[in-house]
Design a protein around this nucleic acid. Sequence first.
DNA 1: ACTTTTGTTAACCATTTGGTTAAAGGCAAT
DNA 2: ATTGCCTTTAACCAAATGGTTAACAAAAGT
Lengths: 211, 211
Amino acid sequence: MSNKELDLSSKEKILNAARRVFIRNGSSGARMQEIADEAGINKALLHYYFKNKEGLFELVFNDAFSEFIPKIHNIFSGDGSVMEKIERYVETHLELLIKKPDLPMFVLNEMQREPRTIFSGILNKMPGAPPFEFFLKQIEEEMKDGKIRTMNPRDLWMNVMSMTVFPFIGEPMLKKFLVLNSEEYRTLLTKRKESILLFIQLALLSKSNTP
Amino acid sequence: MSNKELDLSSKEKILNAARRVFIRNGSSGARMQEIADEAGINKALLHYYFKNKEGLFELVFNDAFSEFIPKIHNIFSGDGSVMEKIERYVETHLELLIKKPDLPMFVLNEMQREPRTIFSGILNKMPGAPPFEFFLKQIEEEMKDGKIRTMNPRDLWMNVMSMTVFPFIGEPMLKKFLVLNSEEYRTLLTKRKESILLFIQLALLSKSNTP
DNA sequence: ACTTTTGTTAACCATTTGGTTAAAGGCAAT
DNA sequence: ATTGCCTTTAACCAAATGGTTAACAAAAGT
């Protein structure tokens, strides 16, 4: 239990501890006793406030999306050119990722394991097809109009998300490949926005030189 | 136990089962009994051939790198321009990833949890700094010579790896964003090589149009 | 043939782990 | 003070889990 939490309600202390432990150890690696210890309360109190491990996990997992989803929804439902939306997405997501760098590993790992019934509830809170479908069409339009270079819109979008998120998931591997220590790596991440957007602009807006 | 394994030695059957179970459930989610069942042998036999869970995990984990590391080492120690090396990397890695799509999630997830002592052994089998450092210098050279566009070499390399690996880790999320079902997604992945390389070539070789 | 070594199993064990219980504190309303 | 309600805890429990044992089966060596 961190010092700042001393005056929080027990329920809050538990939730915060659960968040840390689940994110650190994963759903199956997390121990209820460890959560209780880290919250500074008795283990029985976990079950007083929350049904069971699964229930506590669901809350933590759902909460992991709480900031992300509305912001994303906002960006892709709103106005703006493709490039503007990409810029806003990269900026917004990077900001979240730097605040909570271990969230995507946690989320994607748990999602891959079991397409739980749980997820039906959560993923339906996701923007769902409409805004994304619209964005993909918007990309096609701009390509047809010659505003950006023509390519598979889904590949473009896959590239944007990959360059944004992967550095936070592949850190241990990338550090090796880039010959950087943790501090240098973190510094690199803080300058990541400009670097991603430059790369995308070059691919989408420059005059082709290749066959 | 799959049909093809009926005539393998028990040790091999165990290793194969362990691979599947560890990759499916992670180190902490895997159960020795599940491995035994999936191998079609008695649980005690696990401990006859392998010291314990940790030891079995190590073997599986190490083996996950066995194909990757020498191929990578080969590419980056060999001759060729930056663009040629990138092409060979993307092609080689994609080929491995399509064969074993769930390996990067497994590996990166386990690496992030604990910088285990185990890893010292494995990661030292990694090419280590030398070939990567050389490649980064080679990138700088070619940039200085105007052969490819100038940017932070590490950002470039981060982008290349991200676009290659992330689609295999972020599948559940990307499927939502791209409005694709599993089959369509897999089809997209098979055409991924050309799409990544096009994107990189545009960014590195085209004439700039932007401020 | 028989002895030794290797492979395999059912039964067992100790510990861990998620979860419960019953009792005790704390505290506001009466 | 007493009642009743919410909070918190120590002790406890049953199931799951990693690992061991001792006996049995199958090869291999002689």
